[in-house]
Design a binder for these strands. Structure first.
Length: 311
DNA sequence: CTTTTCACCTGAACGC
DNA sequence: TGCGTTCAGGTGAAAA
């Protein structure tokens, strides 16, 4: 289940093995893998052919390779087209020597004009992920695809707005975990690292965002960064065997997880028995000892002219 | 406009 | 053994 750290590991792999290479052939083995490319698989392949891929970029869980302009000096101007990749639940980008037997769930193969280390393969069992080509937002030097305009900056982005985040989170009328998973508010956080960050910040996932003070939100953000930094340090982590990094090596990190997957086990901080709650067709893992559930409050109604009163 | 729900997908694990 | 059910969960369209 790739979240930001895993995607960053893949980005680094692509930077090393794919940057600067020219596309020689594109084979789409499953049309669903390029469904976000609206002009279809044929157009996807045609547009990539003969183009050179620039240094990959990332925002949250999205990864893209700007297409270098042809006929202009390298580095001149901003890119106008980018190859966007999202790994979804089970996507992998693999570098494989030509001739390596196809993976069972191989969806797209991109080969290059040079000898190089091999071809780029997009493998995805559940086909939630995919590849697509998009125009870039004008003026974006990084070639940000236009379809990503609504994706917030992630907490490892130097341009992430520290001051605006607590205000924005507190103004959402929802609960704190929902807010963490809202990619238009903060990107890159998925179910696993959300639970980890909440555990670090001693916050229950159902805490209404409006009840958090700005300092508490900042602590939570620090928790998000801490768990992401640790995962990145460990080489991008996911214990789901479906996740493999760009070179095909699995990343494993479960020993470092304090909340996710630990139902029935003692909390590493207070020794209380960890719990798993069904939550939005998913799971939330939490410690009843140090992440106190919010007290059930009476419903609050707003009436024009009378301010806020309890029902 | 904001917030919530649900379809999309496959395969491992599990219960009977 | 085999069959049906549950679970995993990011995204965005649709609904509320």
């Amino acid at each position: 289940m790739p979240e930001l750290p895993e995607v960053e590991v893949v980005r680094r792999g692509l930077e090393r093995w794919v940057s600067g290479r020219t596309v020689a052939a594109v084979e789409v083995l499953h049309p669903r893998a390029v469904r976000r490319h609206e002009s279809g698989p044929r157009d996807f392949a045609d547009r990539l052919l003969g183009r050179r891929l620039a240094v990959p970029r990332r925002r949250g869980k999205y990864l893209w390779l700007p297409i270098e302009e042809t006929g202009t000096p390298r580095g001149a101007g901003s890119p106008t087209l980018s190859l966007l990749a999202h790994l979804g639940m089970s996507g992998q980008l693999l570098i494989q020597p030509a001739g390596t037997p196809d993976e069972r769930h191989l969806r797209v193969r991109i080969s290059f004009t040079d000898e190089g280390p091999g071809e780029l393969r997009f493998v995805d069992q559940r086909t939630f992920g995919g590849l697509s080509l998009h125009p870039c937002l004008p003026g974006e030097a990084d070639g940000l695809p236009d379809v990503m305009a609504h994706i917030a900056r992630d907490p490892l982005d130097p341009a992430f707005d520290e001051d605006a985040f607590p205000t924005a989170l507190r103004s959402r009328r929802t609960t704190v975990k929902r807010a963490l998973l809202d990619q238009t508010l903060i990107s890159g956080v998925g179910n696993i690292y959300a639970d980890e960050a909440l555990w670090l910040a001693r916050l229950h996932y159902e805490r209404p965002t409006a009840t958090l003070t700005r300092p508490r939100v900042s602590e939570l953000l620090a928790g998000v960064r801490e768990v992401m930094a640790a995962a990145l340090q460990a080489g991008g982590t996911s214990f789901d065997s479906l996740y493999v990094n760009v070179n095909g090596e699995s990343g494993y990190f479960e020993r470092s997880l304090n909340a996710y997957g630990r139902a029935g086990l003692p909390c590493r901080r207070c020794a209380a028995t960890m719990r798993r709650d069904p939550w939005m067709n998913r799971s939330s893992y939490w410690c009843p000892g140090c992440q106190r559930p919010p007290r059930a409050r009476p419903a609050v109604t707003r009436r024009p002219g009378t301010g806020i009163r309890s029902a």
